[in-house]
Simulated assay, not measured.
Amino acid sequence: MTPTPTGRWTPTPTGGDVVVTRTFRAPIEDVWASVTESDRTARWFGPWKGEGRPGGTIQYQMIQEEGAPWSEATIEVCEAPTRLALNSPGAHLELLLSTVDGGTELRLVHHLPNADAVGDYGPGWEFYLDALVASRDGTPMPDFNDYYPSMRDYFTALAPAQG
């Protein structure tokens, strides 16, 4: 399988954002549950445990990464069912959900201080959101090797070189 990259880079005053979007034929509350309930995140990203509230700290496991490491994040914003913002070392993320055409659009926004790592993060988020789609549709999980390094050049070309 050769997935097509869909993400984009948006410059910001503090760096830039990698934005990857998927649309689901499902109610917003159901998609929200897929990205916030530990038993459902375990199906595509990994489980989490801890204080699932604004200001709370969670530990999450990235099951698709080598060694399936556990990491820590602080929940900055949790506005069900439309916005979740997390901050962890190296990752400031937002999941933004909206109702569109009878379904739900999910935008994953990874705020970066500069464009240096866009070629590494973009393919990973494409992979994880396709894994979310597969977990919801009951289709086979994607293979990370189909995303990286093949999408690296696409994402690197989106962002200007840092000077």
Rank of each mutant, 00 (worst) to 15 (best):
V31G: 06
A26F: 05
A26D: 04
T4F: 04
V18W: 01
G50T: 08
V77K: 15
P69G: 06
Q64D: 15
D146P: 10
Y147S: 03
D143P: 07
F45R: 03
P160T: 11
E79P: 13
G163A: 13
G103M: 05
W9G: 07
T156W: 11
A157T: 12
N145Y: 12
G163K: 13
L97A: 00
P142I: 02
G7K: 00
T10Y: 09
G46M: 05
Y147R: 05
D143L: 13
T12A: 03
E94G: 11
G50S: 09
P27M: 01
V19K: 03
T2C: 12
I58L: 05
P89M: 12
L129F: 03
E79G: 12
W48R: 12
A159F: 03
K49F: 13
L95I: 14
S38Q: 10
E51G: 08
I28Y: 10
F144M: 01
A159E: 00
L129H: 02
W125K: 00
R107K: 13
F24D: 02
D39G: 11
I63A: 14
P54V: 03
A157M: 09
E51Q: 14
G119I: 02
I63P: 09
G138S: 05
P81E: 02
A115N: 06
A91K: 08
Q64K: 11
P113D: 07
M62K: 10
Y148A: 13
L93F: 12
Q61H: 11
S71M: 15
T21F: 11
P13Y: 06
V77G: 13
V100N: 10
W70Y: 07
A117V: 14
G7E: 01
L95H: 09
G138C: 04
T4Q: 08
R8E: 07
S88A: 14
V20H: 07
V77E: 15
E94Y: 10
G103H: 03
P113Y: 09
T2I: 13
T14K: 10
N87I: 15
Y128A: 01
A159N: 05
T156K: 10
G163W: 08
D137V: 04
R83T: 08
A134R: 01
L132G: 04
N145D: 15
E51K: 11
E79I: 08
P47L: 09
T57R: 11
V18H: 02
I75P: 04
